[in-house]
Amino acid sequence: MEFKLLGIMAVMAVAVSVSGAALPPEKYWNLKLPNIQMPQAIREILHSDLLEDKITSVAVGGGGVGVVGNPGRRTSAGARKGGAPITAPSRRKSFLIGVIPIFSPFLYFYAASQTQLHHDPNVALFFLEKDLVKGKTMSLHFTKSANLAAFLPRQDAASIPFSSKSLPGVMDYFSVKPGSVEAKVMEKTVKECEVPGVKGEDKYCATSLESMVDYAESKLGRNLKAVSTEIQKETLKQKYTIEKDAKSVGGKAGDVVCHKLYYPYAVFYCHKVGGSRALLVSLKGEDSSEVKAVAVCHDDTSQWNPKHLAFQVLGVKPGSVPICHFLPQDHIVWYGN
């Protein structure tokens, strides 16, 4: 009986690995990670209304995107028959929803702009490791994510070309005008995914929840766990106190951190960097609001851009001291046992 049960489980595992792409993201999570709580950052974008209304069949190929079965939309001039079928909404809201994002300070090859230094709320999230002690007070600004782009099922996301070469057709399908702010943001996102990582960084851009889970598993093993920063409510910048000693997460394999990028559907820049450590930090604000924050500390920053935001904010040089930062709400840390 035991051997028969093991055989059935093996067949089920093979079936999941072969056909998992066709499963809804939630079911894929439950099959791959049945005993792991889904982080808030993932739960909130599984059913975003950013991608809405009726689903239409689309064919992608020849550098363009053509719509099939929806006479109300024009077909891209670059489309051709025989493209890979995908499903996507016939109408959508702007994926920027009133926000003009700037370069992510959590990608280490970027130099910070003056705009970022003075207006980016993420500036306050960088600190030195020596400050991560119980009772320490920091001025921080935690906000709920304005980036509500939803996950597409893997088979749909995989059918949409994700490259600089294919962008004109993809923009046409998502009704993004060339030269618009949205178009520039899409170009930036794809560029961030295509540019080589810094030395010692293993990077991958996940265009679906399934592909993100699979990447984390390939780097950390099967016993995965995931955490994200959780806030009770949005507040203005205020003083937060560390309520208890930070708790380290992750095993010998380290961790994988995934940062959400701006795109019409959910795309995460995931990377594994040597010499980094993830920690859970309990914070309490002046207004008594509580934040369960995820922090990442980097022991070696010698390969970062010398003009990176962290160095300019903290007044230190690359590779001189460990640098830490809290993660915004829509970033995820994966770790193994």
Rank of each mutant, 00 (worst) to 15 (best):
E2C: 09
G7E: 14
I8P: 01
I8V: 15
M9P: 01
A10R: 11
A13R: 13
V14F: 12
V16I: 15
S17N: 14
V18Q: 10
A22D: 10
A22K: 04
L23E: 08
Y28P: 10
Y28M: 11
W29K: 08
S48V: 09
G61S: 07
G61A: 10
V65S: 12
V68R: 13
G69E: 14
R73N: 08
A77Y: 12
G83T: 15
F95P: 01
G98P: 06
I100P: 02
P105W: 08
F106L: 12
F106Y: 15
L107R: 10
F109W: 12
A111P: 14
S113P: 09
Q116G: 05
L117G: 04
L117F: 09
H118K: 14
H119T: 11
H119E: 13
D120H: 12
P121C: 12
F127Y: 02
K134M: 14
T137H: 06
S139N: 12
H141D: 05
T143Y: 11
T143E: 13
K144L: 04
A150N: 13
P153I: 09
R154N: 13
Q155D: 11
A158P: 02
I160Q: 03
P161K: 05
K165E: 15
K165G: 05
G169F: 07
V170N: 04
M171Q: 12
D172M: 06
F174D: 07
S175E: 15
V185E: 14
V185W: 06
V190C: 05
C193N: 08
V195R: 10
V195E: 15
G197F: 06
C205K: 07
A206F: 04
S208Y: 11
V213G: 07
L224A: 10
K225V: 01
I231A: 06
Q232I: 11
K237W: 02
T241Q: 08
D245E: 15
L261P: 02
Y262I: 02
P264N: 08
V267K: 03
F268G: 03
V273R: 15
V273N: 07
G285N: 08
S288T: 13
S302V: 04
Q303E: 15
N305S: 11
L309P: 04
L314P: 00
V316E: 02
G319N: 05
G319Y: 09
V321P: 00
H325A: 00
L327K: 01
L327Q: 01
D330I: 05
Y335I: 05
